[in-house]
Design a binder for these strands. Structure first.
Length: 792
RNA sequence: GCGGGCGUGGCGAAACCUGGUCAGACGCGCCGGUCUCAAAAACCGGUGUCCUAACGGACAUGUGGGUUCAAAUCCCACCGCCCGCACCA
């Protein structure tokens, strides 16, 4: 019988579906639960119009291998799937091509779901959720209300990117070189009232990574998050503007250089400018303030204007001119700095551009000079001394500043989760009561923003009685950032049908935190950080029993084409359909994992697929040959059996401990090579069973079929093989004999010999004798059962 | 500038975690063979570099140094490449 992948794959996919093979029910409260349970999760996909690309195939196949190996090793594994279904691409497609974002999204979901099913992944489809359905976003809204209640969601004015031509807010992704990608107009900043999550309230804890037991995150991911949070310790110091009887605080990490401050700078957006600066400074600030920080930073030359005011240095009473300049950022520190041109590169550039004085206060040995009583101190001691002196006078204190900003999640778009808030002239900001959730996303005709969010044009939807006073009120026309949806999907996954709460505490206590999370490193400062924030907050609300969502984290490498990451705009996207059509799912799955280490970037090429196809055919042919020619089953000793046991040990260790997915395939290839050379050996049947069993997580369809050929059934439930330790031991070993660390001979000797006997063997070697030249060894090193090194 | 990572054949890579078996498993490609009228497929064999007719030998894991009886593997420095952040005071 020939190997026909498509027929086999259809057949087994149907069998698994009929058997509900990968569905895992939730534990029932009060009943004893299985001890070893595992939550296997890969980042949920966005339902793109192009279907899956190879990165998805890699990602989910890896998760699938882990799922199968864990399941068959006695773990209860939950492995759900869902859709990050809101978001801009579908809305833009609707504007461009007509249709409704929902229809577009659901069509895409259907396509990808079918691809996933064709790939035969062991997904518990009963748990499928999609963020755009009312029974999901109802709970997104409910959670938002909890954050609002706890004052972790709040409104404030903040600048957004605004395209003056299209009259719309635009996302960073759609800005190219400071211009609107669509129309080319220069993007401006415009202040709007927006919703924020108070992520900064958790800044210190987000730095901690107190992972659950067995948890491990890549060092680089933690480094990126730490860098993003950007904690720096310094001091806040008050400078007085005597004329105005006003204190203006600055943040500095270099209080030791305070005596070197020669001028003072505030950011263009600093309230000081509008209130106290001269006209020239005000007009400079207005212009600068309308430009995006990225554009401001792109300019190398320093610009700024003197405000006409002077601030007094609290340590020496010197009057420093107050400037406004766009190199000072409003949203870091206090938005004002003391400028020390002698010891700060940016301040120096500015001082040189505007001929401001430069005073050295740190000498070449790093000691303070020109600093009154502090001369001679090290920088650290100087800073400490200066700050404590100021503290006594009430003019300064130690403080910490963060780079992390609160998370702005208002989006002036249609295709997202409505914000369950109404605005009442009498009552102000009023949350929609829980029993009125969900606030349904209404059907509208036109998604194009015209100076206001699309929902704002829907008068019937916007007008709503105030939940508090019953008077006329209006809804919030914005929707939520899709990262809100994905900040808790992994919690909903474990209790997806719950219709009286977002999730049940008993169920989440059982499954969560996620044991193994797999996804792209590009989500480090977005989704991964937001999810950690959500979990910490929900824990503080008493809704969850843990504080970190993901115990182990793994990032797959990029599948690239032409040296760059696949992307639609570059047109270098490859999906699985061609390979699925030509060679089937098993070949696709094996091939994507065989390409190289899953954690490293790889260049997509089909050039190696032949090797995988040959391997599968050879497995097919060999198993059939073994069934015909090998004696009855039962023999588990011999050369092939030893190799089989070694392969079991290797595959298991690689997948479970090392998270390596390509080397196990090599190992099974080796086993198969030896097996195909002796298909009639007494232990051939055991070797064949082992090869089929070990390849099952990678190629479940053909493995299942061959398992049947070998006379068994339900391989997906078959216990994962365990290496027979007694078979791993060898009676003889190859003794390596080195002279001065170079291999000069090797010989087969009995295992377990004492050192002196090994030395005797080594010295008896003629080849070794030739290198010894009759001299006496200075030293002899023996590694039992391995080698003898003779040093002369 | 700050932070993280990677350098091994023609190519993807293995061995690095846990120092020890002439480094290069497994696969691609290439070369040769079997089969065929021929080709493809399939199967078998070869394939780091250099010297040699051969036997055999020398060299070889980005560069330099260190630790060690022994280094691709551990440590340090440098070079090259990649990624993240960045006028963050």
């Amino acid at each position: 019988m020939d190997y026909e992948p498509h027929a086999i794959e259809r057949k087994w996919q149907q069998v698994w579906a009929d058997a509900d093979a990968f569905h895992v029910p939730n534990p029932v409260s009060g009943e004893p639960a299985p001890e070893r349970h595992w939550y296997q999760l890969e980042m949920l996909p966005y339902p793109s119009a192009n279907g899956m690309h190879m990165g998805h195939v890699l990602n989910y196949t890896m998760g699938d291998v882990v799922t199968h190996v864990r399941r068959r090793s006695g773990w209860t594994v939950v492995r759900p799937m869902g859709w990050d279904a809101f978001g801009l691409p579908a809305e833009n497609a609707a504007i461009r091509e007509g249709g409704h974002p929902r229809e577009i999204t659901e069509r895409n979901i259907k396509t990808i779901r079918e691809q996933m099913k064709r790939l035969g992944w062991a997904i518990d489809w009963d748990r499928e959720v999609s963020s755009h359905t009312p029974d999901y976003y109802r709970w997104t809204q409910w959670l938002f209300l909890k954050f609002f209640e706890h004052e972790l969601a709040y409104r404030k004015e903040a600048p957004v990117n605004w395209c003056p031509n299209d009259q719309t807010v635009i996302a960073n992704e759609y800005i190219v070189d400071g211009h609107c990608e669509r129309c080319g107009a220069l993007v401006e900043l415009r202040n709007m009232t927006q919703w924020f999550f108070k992520t900064t309230a958790y800044a210190d804890e987000l730095l901690e990574f107190e992972l659950p037991e067995g948890g491990e995150w890549p060092e680089r991911t933690k480094a990126i998050q730490r860098n993003w949070i950007g904690r720096s310790e310094g001091a806040e110091i008050l400078f007085r503007v005597d004329e105005l009887d006003l204190d203006v605080p600055v943040f500095t990490t270099r209080a030791d250089t305070l005596f070197g401050a020669t001028f003072f700078v505030v950011a263009p957006e600093h309230p000081f400018v509008e209130a106290h600066a001269n006209e020239e400074a005000k007009s400079y600030a207005r212009l600068a303030g309308a430009r995006r920080a990225e554009d401001r930073a792109a300019e190398t030359a320093k610009t700024g204007v003197f405000t006409g005011q002077y601030a007094t240095n609290p340590v020496n009473g010197e009057k420093l001119p107050v400037w406004v300049a766009d190199y000072v950022l409003m949203d870091y520190g206090t938005g004002a700095i003391m400028a020390v041109p002698a010891h700060d590169e940016r301040d120096r550039e500015f001082a040189e551009a505007f001929s401001l004085p430069i005073v050295d206060v740190i000498d070449d040995d790093g000691k303070l000079v020109n600093s009154n009583g502090f001369d001679g101190l090290t920088a650290m001691d100087g800073a400490r001394g200066i700050v404590s002196m100021l503290e006594e006078k009430g003019r300064g204190k130690l403080t910490v500043s963060y780079r992390l900003r609160d998370w702005s999640f208002s989006r002036q778009r249609y295709w997202g989760c409505p914000i369950p808030i109404v605005y009442c002239d009498k009552c102000g900001v009023v949350p929609v009561p829980e029993d009125q959730l969900p606030v349904l996303l209404p059907e509208i005709e036109d998604y194009a923003p015209k100076g206001k969010p699309p929902l704002a044009s829907n008068e019937a939807w916007m007008r709503v009685p105030c939940p508090k006073c019953g008077g006329e009120a209006r809804r919030d026309p914005d929707t939520m950032d899709t990262f809100v949806d994905s900040s808790w999907y992994f919690i909903r996954y474990v209790d997806p049908h719950n219709d009286h709460a977002p999730f049940d505490r008993f169920v989440t206590d059982y499954w969560l935190p996620v044991n193994q999370y797999i996804g792209g490193i590009d989500h480090t400062t977005g989704h991964l950080l937001y999810s950690r924030f959500f979990v910490k907050a929900l824990n503080d609300f008493g809704m969850l029993g843990f504080r970190e969502p993901f115990a182990r984290l793994f990032h797959q490498g990029w599948v690239q084409m032409g040296g760059t990451k696949m992307s639609k705009t570059k047109g270098n996207v490859a999906g699985p359909d061609d390979i699925l059509g030509e060679y089937g799912a098993d070949a696709m799955r094996l091939y994507i994992l065989f390409m190289g280490p899953a954690g490293e970037d790889m260049e997509w090429t089909e050039s190696g697929i032949d090797g995988i196809v040959r391997f599968v055919r050879r497995l097919w042919r060999t198993v059939h040959e073994v069934v015909e020619r090998a004696p009855a089953p039962g023999v588990r000793e011999g050369t092939l059996a030893r190799k089989a046991n070694e392969t079991i040990a290797k595959v298991t260790d690689d997948v479970v401990r090392r998270f390596r997915f390509h080397t196990p395939i090599s190992a099974v290839m080796e086993l198969l090579k030896e097996l195909s050379a002796a298909p009639d050996a007494p232990d051939a049947r055991f070797a064949a069973e082992t090869a089929v069993s070990l390849i099952q997580p990678y190629a479940p369809h053909v493995a299942e079929e061959l398992w049947g050929v070998l006379g068994h059934e339900r391989l997906w439930e078959e216990p994962w093989p365990v290496a027979d330790e007694s078979q791993l031991r060898r009676d003889t070993i190859e003794l390596v004999v080195q002279v001065n660390g170079k291999v000069r001979d090797r010989m087969t000797v009995a295992a377990g010999l004492p050192e002196d006997e090994l030395i005797a063997f080594a010295r008896a070697s003629e080849r070794v004798a030739a290198y010894l030249n009759g001299g006496e060894p200075r030293n002899v090193i023996v590694v039992p059962d391995k080698l003898v090194n003779i040093v002369v």
